[in-house]
Design a protein around this nucleic acid. Structure first.
Lengths: 138, 138
DNA sequence: ATTTATACTTACCCAAAAGAGAGTATTGAG
DNA sequence: CTCAATACTCTCTTTTGGGTAAGTATAAAT
């Protein structure tokens, strides 16, 4: 178990000092939420979107959350916001290089989820069974 | 921009039907939160931990959240929980293969955060400046 | 003159998430 | 008899997330 190549590979990376660690945590904390990940995915596929398009593509999001999330993405340099001075207003959003890089990093997680969701489902069923069986119910 | 190799690579993957997409989103929704990611990282580095160790290693987490997050990880088949019937109690947590796989997937995100946190910081500073400069202050 | 389109912003509200802190069970050590 | 040690569990309170709905600005179309 200790010389598992997986784990070895992982261990090579996390050789950082704790100060950086905390910054990393913060950065991830900002970026690892549902709407952010979804919007990044949409902008990865569509390349360039107006507010209204995003609103439709990102099913279930409210205007408020959409604006809020987009502002955060813009602030962190992950998307650009281009305003065309026309009436009615037109605003376009697209990923920056930085945003594209993050998108790529998330990619691994999307793939993992895709490949393993059945195993997770299965684990959940088994967990419920186990809980039913032992005396510890409730 | 359209034939950016990055984007091409990303586009190859997301060719899935919407039903699976929603499951993937759900799975990610469960798994992509701060404490979960931190605990997975700790368990990746330490291999095997007792409750108390995790409590110390995962700075700032409350007992409640720790228990809660560990239960969720166990339920989803990402960690095993081994109880030794001794007094005082002893319980050990460790990643399963599934959990290790997720850890690996998260790895890309950790690396991205580590490599790019300065760029994010910079972007934030510039954003604030821009807001100060234009008339839209408020 | 009124409506329409777009991209927001603001104010108000509720429910869920998270934190704080006390309580529980067990038994060997003193 | 009491205490320490461990891993919770429960309750109470605070914080946060997020929804709804109305308001704003502008010019072109009717």
């Amino acid at each position: 178990m200790t010389n598992d190549p997986f784990r070895q590979e992982l261990l090579n990376i996390s050789e950082t000092d704790p100060a950086v660690d905390r910054l990393v945590e913060q950065t991830i904390g900002r970026v690892a939420d549902k709407w952010t990940m979804l919007l990044i995915e949409i902008l990865t596929n569509r390349e360039c979107c107006r507010f209204g398009e995003l609103s439709k593509a990102c099913e279930g999001i409210s205007q408020k959350m959409l604006t809020q999330t987009l502002r955060a993405l813009e602030r962190d340099g992950l998307v650009t916001r281009t305003v065309y001075p026309v009436v009615p207003p037109k605003v376009e959003y697209r990923l920056t290089d930085l945003g594209l890089g993050l998108s790529k990093a998330f990619c691994g997680v999307w793939i993992w989820a895709e490949e393993n969701l059945e195993r997770v489902e299965q684990a959940r069923k088994e967990y419920v069974e186990r809980k039913k069986d032992d005396g510890t119910v409730r």
